[in-house]
Design a protein around this nucleic acid. Sequence first.
DNA 1: CGGTAGGGATAGGGTTCT
DNA 2: TAGAACCCTATCCCTACC
Lengths: 185, 185
Amino acid sequence: MGGPKQMWTPKEEAALRAGVRRYGTGKWCSILLHPKYGLALKARSNVDLKDKWRNLSATTFGSRKKKAKIAFQNQDEDDDTALAIVAVANDDDGGQQIVPASPANDDDEGLSASVDTFILEAITSWKKLLRPNKKSILQHVEEKNNMQPDMKRLVASRLQHLVNVGAIIKKNNRYTISPTYAAAE
Amino acid sequence: MGGPKQMWTPKEEAALRAGVRRYGTGKWCSILLHPKYGLALKARSNVDLKDKWRNLSATTFGSRKKKAKIAFQNQDEDDDTALAIVAVANDDDGGQQIVPASPANDDDEGLSASVDTFILEAITSWKKLLRPNKKSILQHVEEKNNMQPDMKRLVASRLQHLVNVGAIIKKNNRYTISPTYAAAE
DNA sequence: CGGTAGGGATAGGGTTCT
DNA sequence: TAGAACCCTATCCCTACC
């Protein structure tokens, strides 16, 4: 049987989110039949999709005590309220428009969103004392998102963007989550 | 609640080993449902069993620090001089067939079972003479079971499992049938 | 029989205590 | 520092219900 545990890749998550956007929840087989999403999710079953969606929902709306990354994952309807990152995170096949400051934005949907997520994740999950610098963040993102050689530029770009929108703060070349966002708690 | 730490007693460990021998790893609830083992382990949860088994495995085999996968691929030669813990208690529940539930690959349960048989066979046939080391056992199994290049890994894996379970004892890189286990047969 | 929802079990990483 | 016990939760599995 399959190995130990198949962790979901950012790409798969993106495909799932986009699929739910299009077909709604509970249409797992429909999502798998979609040419694009189905391709990205070819290693997953309908039950897998169901389980993963349950997870995403739980971490998004559930306990706010943990990692801040949960605050930046959004999926359902509009309500792209307080968090700027949310707007970026919601891309799907439906004609998108926002996608700010995305230099290397190609076909790959969800890439910027994933990068943003990982950047925030890197910052929030950093061990107590040290705050990550750009290199540390890049390393984290590359681990999570094993891909593209352009990743360096993309991370730098998204990092700058997140600072610009006030999601994170840069100080002495090190980054922290903006108190405003942390306050969302 | 959950006062201090509840250290595992030898009796509990024995029950766990016997349970794994009967049901295999990853069947923690099954072990707890067993009338006898469950009784001895009534203070433990399925997760406790899983955690304890992980600890036992870790201390029984390599205290090699690196990645488990690397260690797994490197176990060509004998190297570890660990003394297998054999606290196997009164597992008089009748001679149980050695069950599958291999740690690494459980692609074929019957295969693991037969490998176990050959391993035990190899050890017993050596009994009068020298106690076999891993290489000797591998050779025996390969003769009996002409096949797969994966056999090396499989034998090593099953060997570890049998030690874990208390069926055989490893000492100075050589193996013997556990007295307790031999008695049960 | 195929798909879904939900409960529950497991695996593996983290954390805490000694 | 390491090891044992325990916690957290993503993933996987099982069953009932259409």
